[in-house]
Structure formats: structure tokens, C-alpha cells
Computed example of a mutant assay.
Amino acid sequence: MKKISFVLLLSLVSLSGFSQKKLYTYPLGVQAYTFRNHFPKGVEQTLDIIQKMGFTELEGGPQKGQTAAEFKKMCNDRGISIPSTGCSFEELQKDPQAVADKAKALGAKYVMCAWIPHKGNDFTLEDTKKAVEVFNAGGKVLAENGITFCYHDHGYEFRPHDKGTYMDYIIQNTDPKYVSFEMDVLWTIHGGGVASPQELLKRYGNRWKLMHVKDLRKGVVGDKSGHEPAENDVVLGTGQADWKKIFKLSKKAGIQHYFIEDESNKELENVPKSIEYLKSL
């Protein structure tokens, strides 16, 4: 009887999931840019595709000709929330209050900026210092409105500076009360190398609030340009990223929102495979 009870207990433990911890336990999120070729053909049809794929979170905003309220309702009708939206560097610099108002209209708690203006491939210390100034000032306004500002790295910030990189300079010289970060794994590898996502998650911990879950084709060596061909964006788990290590460290850092972003031209084929990979971890 005792032997049977012990076997039964082991079975229950296994079924309850205690015997194997899953690495990815968060809602499925997607970056709207993934469907950039679909939204212009029909917003509702595109959101239907996103819903059918199983996504419940979207990082994005109203499409051309829409208000934030209209887009939010379309998403809500499909069980999709918008925890994060984007803004340009210029918008943040010129009118951060307008950026905050748009985010609040969408129900977003985060605003991310994914590009710092610079000439060609020449990203300089002057560009970096300007970004720190704009991020601190704009981030303060957003924080006063209950919104967290995040800068999304793009590869070019990993050029060497002093004993680190321009990315280190940005993180170290922005106020944690007003500026946080969104890690784009592909661009982090493209700019800093395969181990860079893990290193940065360890080094800066809870400064990271969001993540773009995106993989870089094996064999591609980044050039710190912030540019690469679309075909180098591949299905999760088939590229260079060590997702098991990345997710262990991102959980420790406290990241809550993860957005698949597929910049290839095979998004309808690639994204379902990436979702299955996440579920398998």
C-alpha cells in the first residue's frame, strides 16, 4: 500500500509540473512591426491573424488613419492588450507629454524608443550624450504620467568607449527612476556578440524591463551598423541566441513582457514555429 501511494505521489507531482520547470511562462506577445506588410491591407484582418496565432499581448499602436482608442478597442475585442507602444526620438524630444497621452489612451504602461538619430554608420559620443539628455528629460515626464520609458538597443551602441561601450555609457548615465531598457536579442548579438545578452542581463539586472525575442542566423557576424538583411532574422532556436540562459537571466532581472519580432518576409511561416519553440522550453 505504501509503495502504491509513493508511485501515485510521483505521478501527481509529474502531472502538476513540479518535476520540470518551464523557462517561458509569460503571455505570448508580438511586436506589431512583424506584420508591417499586413496592417496596410486591413487592420482587423491582421489582428485576427495575431489572435489566431495565440498572442494576447501586442507592442504597437494605431495604424494610419486610426485613433489610439479605435485601435485599442479592436485589440480588446480580440483579447489582446497593449502593454507597450513606441515613439520616435524626435517625438520624445519635442513633446513627451503627447507621447504619454497616446500611451495612456492605448492602456500601455511602457513606451519604447528604438533609434537614436546619427549620420550614416557613424554613431558618436556626441550622439550618445544627446540621447542621455533626451531620455532623462522625456523619461521624467513619462514617469510623472505613470509610464515607464525604455530605450531599445539596436547594435550600433556597442562600439567601444572608455572601458566599455556607448551602450554602457547610456545605461550608466541615465536616471534609473526615469529610464529603463528593452533588450532586442538579435541586435544585442549583432552589436555585442553572442554572449552579450547574458552579460548585459547580469550587469544591469532590473534596468531591463522588456525584451524583443528575435534570433540571428548562425554564422552572421555583426558589424555594429544597426542594419542587416531580413533573411538573417530566423526562427527562434535555430539561430545564435542561447535562449535557455537568456530566459533564466531575464526572469531573474524581472522582465515581464516579451515580444516576438520577426523582420523576415516569412512571418506567417516563421512565427508559429517560434511560438512552438517557446512552448517547448
Rank of each mutant, 00 (worst) to 15 (best):
Y166K: 02
D101E: 15
E157T: 13
F89V: 07
V221T: 15
N76F: 00
N270Q: 15
G54V: 06
G193W: 08
N206E: 13
K129Y: 02
K209S: 09
K224W: 03
T25Q: 14
F123W: 04
E276S: 13
S180Q: 15
D153Y: 06
V220D: 06
K248G: 02
K209N: 09
Q93T: 12
A103Q: 07
K94E: 14
G155N: 10
H152P: 02
D48L: 02
K41S: 11
N121W: 12
V235D: 02
E269K: 11
G164V: 01
Q45D: 15
V213E: 01
L200N: 11
D184C: 01
N270A: 11
K218W: 08
G61E: 05
A114N: 14
F247H: 05
T67H: 04
K119W: 01
H154K: 07
E57H: 13
S88C: 10
M112E: 08
F259I: 10
D215N: 04
K130G: 11
G191S: 08
A108R: 03
V132L: 09
K177I: 00
E144W: 04
S180P: 02
K244N: 15
T25S: 14
D215A: 04
L200P: 03
M112F: 15
L281T: 12
L12W: 08
F259T: 07
W187H: 08
G239W: 08
K130D: 13
T85C: 15
F55Y: 10
I50C: 01
L142R: 05
W187E: 03
E59H: 08
L200F: 14
K279Q: 15
E91N: 10
I82V: 14
T165F: 10
D95G: 09
K177M: 07
G65E: 12
R217F: 03
K130Y: 05
G222M: 02
V220P: 11
Y156T: 01
F259G: 05
Y33C: 02
M183G: 00
S196M: 15
E126C: 00
N265S: 09
K248F: 00
H212P: 03
E57Q: 15
K202F: 00
E57S: 10
I275C: 00
E157W: 07
C87V: 06
E144P: 07
G222H: 04
I4N: 04
S196G: 00
I260G: 06
S225I: 07
D153C: 13
C75K: 03
K209H: 11
S88H: 12
A195N: 15
W187V: 03
K209Y: 08
W187G: 06
G54K: 12
Y110K: 06
E144H: 01
M53E: 11
E228W: 12
H152W: 08
D233K: 02
C113R: 06
H257N: 15
Q198I: 11
G54R: 10
L10R: 01
E126A: 12
L8E: 11
G42C: 01
L23S: 13
G42K: 07
A108K: 04
E276T: 10
